[in-house]
Design a protein around this nucleic acid. Sequence first.
DNA 1: CGTGCTTTTGACCGGTCTCAACGCATGTGG
DNA 2: CCACATGCGTTGAGACCGGTCAAAAGCACG
Lengths: 261, 261
Amino acid sequence: MLRETSALPSGMLPRSEPRPGPRRFFRRIAAARPLSEVERMAVAAACAPPADLDPAVDLLVEGEPVRTGYILEEGWACRYRLLNDGRRQILTLLVPGDEAGASAGLVRTADHSVATLTPCRVYPVPAASLQAVQQQHPVLRRAFAWSARRDLAIMQEHVVDLGRRTARERFAHLVLELLCRLRLVGLADDDGFTLPLTQGVLADVLGLSIVHVNRTLRWLNDEGLVRYRPGRLEVVDIPGLTRVAEFDEDYLHHAPPGRPP
Amino acid sequence: MLRETSALPSGMLPRSEPRPGPRRFFRRIAAARPLSEVERMAVAAACAPPADLDPAVDLLVEGEPVRTGYILEEGWACRYRLLNDGRRQILTLLVPGDEAGASAGLVRTADHSVATLTPCRVYPVPAASLQAVQQQHPVLRRAFAWSARRDLAIMQEHVVDLGRRTARERFAHLVLELLCRLRLVGLADDDGFTLPLTQGVLADVLGLSIVHVNRTLRWLNDEGLVRYRPGRLEVVDIPGLTRVAEFDEDYLHHAPPGRPP
DNA sequence: CGTGCTTTTGACCGGTCTCAACGCATGTGG
DNA sequence: CCACATGCGTTGAGACCGGTCAAAAGCACG
């Protein structure tokens, strides 16, 4: 991955090392509106140099002030909440191109934690830069607003999953959502995607026990809807999954807001 | 209700009928930052004249474009999603001061529906005015951004409720959340609040069946945590409820974002 | 006083959880 | 090279939380 080399116009950067910037983030944002070269440079300049992190590293901690946001370039992470007795609920999975802590300036303290789930490459973005860059580029302000709105939509769908869908339906829905989100940033091929998560993590996403995740996975396998192998998920029967999950990708708002259909 | 009469400074409005504007909305927003008279006037001017609606009226419909937002001045409403077989999940309850459809400009179509649950008084706000008023008043832009961020936080907590809390814990959490939110807009007294919702509606909020809502309510009653009577909920034992729900109101972000604590 | 909606209660069912054990891969140190 | 520990995946058995079905009681409204 990250094999593609820098394609920035020459002579636009100081003679220091070229900064590729958060490419997967740009790719995701382009779904709402493509960014100009100027805007991409502004974001890249706001970013600190990328950091490579181990799994299970906390980027944000619930209850603490948010001094810096993070743009995820590579690897998987999650937003989560912990209960006193150890129960964990994962609020959203974060995949490359997603960001955390972008609303730093609006809240006094973080209302959730964020942790890496796999080795990750992230671009830290100081909260101040985050605000400044939006101040100076209205298009970026809109981009971040769209991104926040999309997060809300994903969370809404998650509420429906946990409140009113069975384990089977939930799982099918998650698979299709991940497929769409990963496709957007070029990380899914036609027959599936890399899924570097343990079943324990999936359980905390889906609000189920590990054991039941395992069984559900087996059923979906046996029905021929997916083919699962630790580390990779192959999406065998998209129409079938779509029917089971009643999936409609519109909620992800990957189509730009133009004239209504 | 609405007994209080206009307290606007005299001579500031055209000689037509005085427009009180969405007072409960102003009151809620003031938690993040109080609005100046100018800003309140701008919002009031963006609003269409208030409309009085029956229960079970749809304000927004999933899949349709959002031409106008709504500020709720009186009554209860909800955002919800429907599944094909009739299952309904309520995403958030809306109480006076809350708004719906404020993100009109960011999405092509609505990803959820919004309906009144009781008789309501709402201020419709054309999507164009909504954007214009934020364009002209950066403070209002921040206010709406804060409001959206708060919605996200409420939804996050809802995910934790549905994914990892038992029926008892969920209910306790809902009670305390509503208490905080209603207090903010002056609609809760010390010993409880008006709860004009059927148990069927509560079931769709909590992701439970009607029958189980009823039983859970009975248990909380018998334990002396609340006293419920259709139409009103009295909060008897706040510390007890707080312990059961592990409730911490910080996530509502009712304290303005200043220097960290 | 019917009609319809909501609340309440009982009996039973079933999806999911918990507990427990085992297999398997990987890593580590002797 | 082997012994052992560790973490994850898998499977079975039984318990429990919450769902479903059914019916009656309370209540608003015509």
